[in-house]
Write a protein that binds this DNA or RNA. Structure first.
Length: 598
RNA sequence: GGCCCCGUGGUGUAGCGGUCUAACAUGCCACCCUGUCACGGUGGAGAUCGGGGGUUCGAAUCCCCCCGGGGUCGCCA
C-alpha cells in the first residue's frame, strides 16, 4: 500500500506516530511560509502542515499542489497548537507534520466544485460522474446504499434465505413492460430479453425446493423514466415456499423496522405498519400509494350535489361522474390569487377546475356559520344545510377551506390525490422525520382492459386469487380478490408481491381469461405450467425497489442520486455516451440491418 | 406524443426593453503573507447571455421556431 492509514481514521491516539497518507488535495491554504493542505481520501479529511523549517523540499513541492492533485505525504501525527483546533473537522484536534511528499498525479482544474456542496447542472455531473462521486453527498449515498444492501443480506441470511443469481439473458414475454432485447449471433433472427424481474425464475426455484430465495436483482424495463424510475434498476427480490400473505408481510415489516433502526435511527416509524385495503386507499386517498403521514381524506359529495341546482356538477354526475373533495384546515383565508393558483394547478393536471368553499373567516365551531360567511362561487346554488352537511362529512371547523373536484371517477381520484399532496406540501403536514410505511392489500385480481377487450392481471398473471373467490372467476372476474400486497412509504410504492398460483389448471384458467389461446399459453408459459405439475409447493414473495428505499433513506428526490452511473430522462448514460452506434460488422454478425426511419 | 419549468464567464447566481462596453460570489493565474481551516491582501485573465429568426430607433430582457436538460401525463404485467 502507498499509505499506512486512512485520513479519517487518525485520532489523538496516533499522536507521535509516523504515518504515510495518500489521497486528494481537498483545499490548499498557502501562507507563504506555512502551507496547509486538507488531504482527503474515502475515510475523511485531515490537515497536513508543510513547514519549510521541517522540510524545505516538501514545502516547495506543496506550493505547486492544487485542488484534486493526488499526493502522498509522510510525517508525524501531532496535536494541534492550542487555540488552532478545528471542531468542525472530525480530525480537527490533530494534524500531520509533513517531512516528505510526492505528487502522484496532478489534476486539471475540475469542471465543478468537489469540496463544496452546491447544486451543479446534472448534465455536467453525469458527464464527469467520477468527479461527482468524489463529493461528500454522493460518497455518503454510495456508502448508505452499501450498508442497506449489506444489512439486508445479513438479515435474510439470518432467516435462512440463500442468495441465488438468475440469468440476465432470458426470454421475452408479451406481458408487462417493453423488453430490452439482445440479438442472438448464434440463432439468426432470435432475441434474448433482459429480465423485467426474476419472477418466473424465482418461482421455478421454489419448485426446485429452495424454499427461501433472495437476490439483489438488476431489472430492465424499456419505458419512460421518472424521478423514481430508471430503465435499469435494482430490486430486492425474495420468494418463500409454504407461506401465506401474513408470512411475507410480517417478514418485510420486521426487515424494514430493523433496517430503519440500523440505518436511520433518527427517523420515526409507526409500528405495526398499518394495513389498508385497496378499496379504502382509493376511497380515502384516490391512489393505491397514499402518503398517510397526514389525513385530509377524500369525501364523496356526489349525493349532496345531485340535490343542488349547480348545473355544471349536475351534468358531470348525470354522465356517470363523481364529485369528491378534501378539507384544507385553516385555509379559508386564502386570497383570490392563492385560489387561482390552486385552480391553475388542477387545470394543469387536466381537470376542469376546483370549486372552493371557504368556511367563514373565524376559526372555531361551525354552529354559528351563516350562508353569507361561506365564500364560494357555488353558495348561490347551495343551502346552509348542505354546506353544513359537507362540513360535517369532513369534520371541518370554521376557517377551513373545502376543495371540490368533479369529473370522471378515475380523473377525480387522480387530480384530487395530487391536490391533496400539494396542500400537504403547502401546509407542511407531512412530518419529514417520519417514515409512514403501510401495506395495501386486497387488490382486485383482474382489471378489464377496454381497448384490448379482455381481462388483464392487475399485478401479474401469477398472482393467486383468494380461495373463496375462485368460483367467481367464471361469473364475475372483477369481484375476485388477489393475494397481492404492496408496501408503500410516504407516498412511494416501494414494493409489491403476492402469493402465487402453484397449480397448473388454475394458472391456465387465468391465462385464458387474459385472452390467450391454449396454444399461446403453451408456447409462452408451458415451462411454468409443466413445472407446476411436478410437486410445486405453495409459495409467494415480494420485490422491493432498492433504489427507491435508498433514495428515501438518503433524503434524496430522485433515484439518480443513489445510483453510481444513472441514465438521464432520455435513457442516455452521459458518462459513457450510451447507447451508441455499432459497426456494420457487428450488425452483420447479429444478422441485423438498420431500417431507414421516416 | 401532450403539458409545465429551466438554459447568462469554469461553477453558482443577479439583471427581465435604453443606465449592459453584462454585475456579484466563488474558482483560475501572478505576486505578497509562518497557524490557517470556505485563510487573508493586491493585481489580472475569463461570457458571441443555448442556437436561429422576428418585433423595435434599441433585445440577455418581448414573440416564434429549434436544440439541450428536468418534472409530469400517457407508459411502467
Amino acid at each position: 500500500m502507498l499509505k499506512t492509514h486512512s485520513c479519517g481514521e487518525l485520532t489523538k491516539k496516533n499522536i507521535g506516530t509516523e504515518v504515510t497518507l495518500a489521497g486528494w488535495v481537498d483545499r490548499r491554504r498557502d501562507h507563504g511560509g506555512l502551507i496547509f493542505i486538507d488531504l482527503r481520501d474515502r475515510g475523511g479529511i485531515i490537515q497536513v502542515v508543510f513547514n519549510p523549517e521541517t522540510s524545505k523540499a516538501a514545502h516547495k513541492k506543496a506550493s505547486g499542489m492544487r485542488s484534486e492533485y493526488v499526493i502522498q505525504v509522510s510525517g508525524k501525527v501531532a496535536s494541534r497548537q492550542k487555540g488552532t483546533e478545528n471542531l468542525k473537522l472530525a480530525t480537527g484536534e490533530i494534524e500531520v507534520i509533513a517531512d516528505s511528499t510526492e505528487i502522484l498525479n496532478p489534476s486539471k482544474v475540475p469542471p465543478f466544485y468537489i469540496n463544496e456542496d452546491i447544486e451543479v447542472d446534472e448534465n455536467l455531473r453525469l458527464k464527469y460522474r467520477y468527479l461527482d462521486l468524489r463529493r461528500a453527498r454522493m460518497k455518503k449515498n454510495l456508502q448508505l446504499r452499501h450498508r442497506v444492501v449489506k444489512f439486508t443480506r445479513d438479515f435474510l441470511d439470518g432467516k435462512g434465505f440463500i442468495e441465488i443469481e438468475t440469468p440476465i439473458l432470458t426470454k421475452s414475454t408479451p406481458e408487462g413492460a417493453r423488453d430490452y432485447l439482445v440479438p442472438s449471433r448464434v440463432h439468426p433472427g432470435k432475441f434474448y430479453a433482459l429480465p423485467q424481474s426474476p419472477q418466473q425464475m424465482k418461482q421455478l426455484l421454489m419448485v426446485a425446493g429452495v424454499e427461501k430465495y433472495f437476490q439483489i436483482a438488476k431489472c430492465f424495463r424499456d419505458e419512460d423514466t421518472r424521478a423514481d424510475r430508471q430503465p435499469e434498476f435494482t430490486q430486492l427480490d425474495l420468494e418463500m415456499s409454504f407461506v401465506d400473505e401474513e408470512d411475507i408481510i410480517c417478514l418485510i415489516e420486521e426487515l424494514f423496522i430493523a433496517l430503519m433502526k440500523d440505518i436511520r435511527p433518527d427517523i420515526k416509524v409507526v409500528q405495526p405498519f398499518p394495513h389498508l385495503s385497496y378499496a379504502e386507499a382509493m376511497r380515502d386517498y384516490g391512489t393505491d400509494k397514499p402518503d398517510i403521514r397526514f389525513g385530509m381524506k377524500f369525501q364523496d359529495l356526489t349525493d349532496i350535489f345531485t340535490k343542488t341546482e349547480f348545473s355544471i356538477f349536475r351534468k358531470v354526475i348525470d354522465q356517470g361522474g363523481r364529485v369528491k373533495g378534501i378539507c384544507a384546515p385553516s385555509c379559508a383565508s386564502y386570497s383570490r390569487s392563492q385560489l387561482d393558483e390552486l385552480n391553475k394547478f388542477v387545470v394543469s393536471l387536466g381537470g376542469g377546475g376546483v370549486v372552493t368553499i371557504a368556511l367563514g373567516s373565524e376559526s372555531g365551531s361551525l354552529d354559528k356559520l351563516k350562508l353569507d360567511d361561506a365564500k364560494s362561487v357555488v353558495t348561490k346554488f347551495l343551502s346552509l344545510e348542505q354546506i353544513k352537511q359537507m362540513a360535517q362529512l369532513f369534520g371541518a371547523r370554521a376557517g377551513d377551506l373545502l376543495l371540490i373536484i368533479a369529473g370522471k371517477p378515475k380523473q377525480v381520484d387522480n387530480i384530487l390525490s395530487e391536490l391533496r399532496l400539494e396542500m400537504g406540501r403547502r401546509l407542511k403536514l407531512a412530518d419529514p422525520e417520519l417514515f409512514s410505511f403501510a401495506f395495501v392489500r386486497h387488490f382486485p385480481l383482474l382489471r378489464w382492459d377496454e381497448e384490448a377487450g379482455r381481462w388483464e392481471a392487475e399485478h401479474h398473471p401469477f398472482t393467486s386469487p383468494w380461495e373463496e373467490d375462485t368460483a367467481l372467476l367464471e361469473s364475475a372476474p372483477e369481484k375476485v380478490r388477489g393475494k397481492h400486497y404492496d408496501i408503500v412509504c410516504n407516498g412511494y410504492e416501494i414494493g409489491g408481491g403476492s402469493i402465487r398460483i402453484h397449480k397448473s389448471e388454475l394458472q391456465r384458467k387465468i391465462f385464458r381469461l387474459a385472452g390467450y389461446s391454449d396454444k399461446e399459453i403453451d408456447e409462452r408459459f408451458g415451462h411454468m405450467l409443466e413445472a407446476f405439475q411436478y410437486g410445486a409447493p405453495p409459495h409467494g414473495g415480494i420485490a422491493i425497489g432498492l433504489d427507491r428505499i435508498v433514495m428515501l433513506l438518503a433524503g434524496e428526490e430522485t433515484i439518480r442520486e443513489v445510483i453510481a452511473f444513472p441514465k438521464n430522462q432520455a435513457a442516455v448514460d452521459l458518462t459513457f455516451d450510451a447507447p451508441s452506434s455499432v459497426s456494420p460488422e457487428q450488425l452483420k454478425e447479429l444478422h441485423l440491418r438498420l431500417r431507414e426511419e421516416e
